[in-house]
Amino acid sequence: KILMCPEHETERINMYCELCRRPVCHLCKLGGNHANHRVTTMSSA
């Protein structure tokens, strides 16, 4: 099953924010609420 980002509906979730303990997409990481947070790949989470 492909998970889609709730904030960016057209983007797949492919990362996990370690600080917030939630999955995020690349747009969340690049310029969103998680820009300065440490993220890992979903396969490592």
Score class of each variant (00 low, 15 high):
S43W: 03
R22E: 13
A35N: 03
E18M: 06
L30D: 15
H34M: 02
T10I: 10
R38H: 14
H8N: 00
L30C: 11
V39C: 09
H8G: 01
C28N: 02
K29G: 11
V24E: 04
Y16A: 04
C20S: 01
C5Y: 00
T41P: 09
M42W: 09
P23C: 05
S44M: 07
E18R: 03
R12V: 11
E9H: 09
H26K: 03
E7R: 08
N14V: 13
I2D: 12
H34Q: 03
L27Y: 05
L19A: 15
A45R: 08
H26P: 13
L27M: 08
I2V: 06
N33I: 09
C5T: 01
R22W: 03
E18V: 06
H26Y: 15
K1F: 06
C25V: 00
R38K: 11
V24G: 09
C28A: 01
M42C: 10
R38N: 12
G31K: 08
K1A: 04
T41C: 08
C17N: 00
A35F: 02
T41R: 08
E7M: 06
R22Q: 13
N14F: 15
A35C: 08
K29M: 10
H37D: 05
T10K: 14
A45P: 12
C17T: 01
M4G: 04
C20V: 01
C17L: 00
C25R: 01
K29P: 10
T40W: 04
P23A: 09
C28T: 01
M42Q: 14
M4W: 05
R38T: 14
V39R: 09
V24I: 15
M4C: 09
T10H: 10
I13P: 15
A45S: 09
I13W: 11
E7K: 08
E18K: 06
E18A: 07
H34D: 03
C5A: 00
R12A: 04
C5M: 00
T40R: 08
M15L: 02
R38P: 11
L27I: 10
S44Q: 10
H34T: 03
H34G: 04
H26M: 04
I2H: 07
C20G: 01
R21H: 07
T10A: 07
M42P: 15
G32M: 05
R38G: 15
H34I: 01
H34L: 02
L19R: 14
E7A: 09
E7I: 15
L27F: 06
C20P: 00
N33Y: 06
E9G: 12
N33E: 12
I13A: 11
H37F: 02
A35L: 08
R21T: 09
R21I: 02
G31I: 05
V39W: 07
G32Q: 10
L30Y: 02
N14K: 13
Y16H: 15
N36Y: 06
T10R: 10
H8K: 01
C28V: 02
L27R: 12
E9K: 15
L3R: 08
N33A: 14
L27C: 05
K1D: 07
L19W: 08
S44R: 08
R21G: 08
L19T: 15
K1Y: 02
M15A: 06
R38V: 13
M42N: 09
L19D: 13
T10Y: 06
V39D: 14
T10F: 03
P23F: 05
S43H: 09
C25S: 01
C20R: 02
K29L: 13
I2T: 08
E18C: 05
S43G: 11
T40S: 11
P6C: 05
L30V: 13
L30W: 05
T40M: 03
G31N: 10
C17E: 01
L3K: 12
G31C: 08
N14Y: 09
G32V: 06
A35H: 06
C20E: 02
V39P: 12
K1I: 04
L27T: 15
L19I: 13
C28E: 04
P6Y: 05
T41W: 04
C17K: 00
N36G: 09
E9I: 10
G31S: 11
C25Q: 02
L3N: 11
R22L: 11
R12E: 11
G32L: 07
S44Y: 05
T40A: 11
H26S: 12
P6S: 10
C25H: 01
R21F: 02
S43E: 15
H26Q: 14
E7S: 08
I2R: 04
M42E: 15
R21S: 12
N14A: 10
S44I: 04
C20Q: 02
L30P: 12
C25Y: 00
P23G: 12
H26I: 00
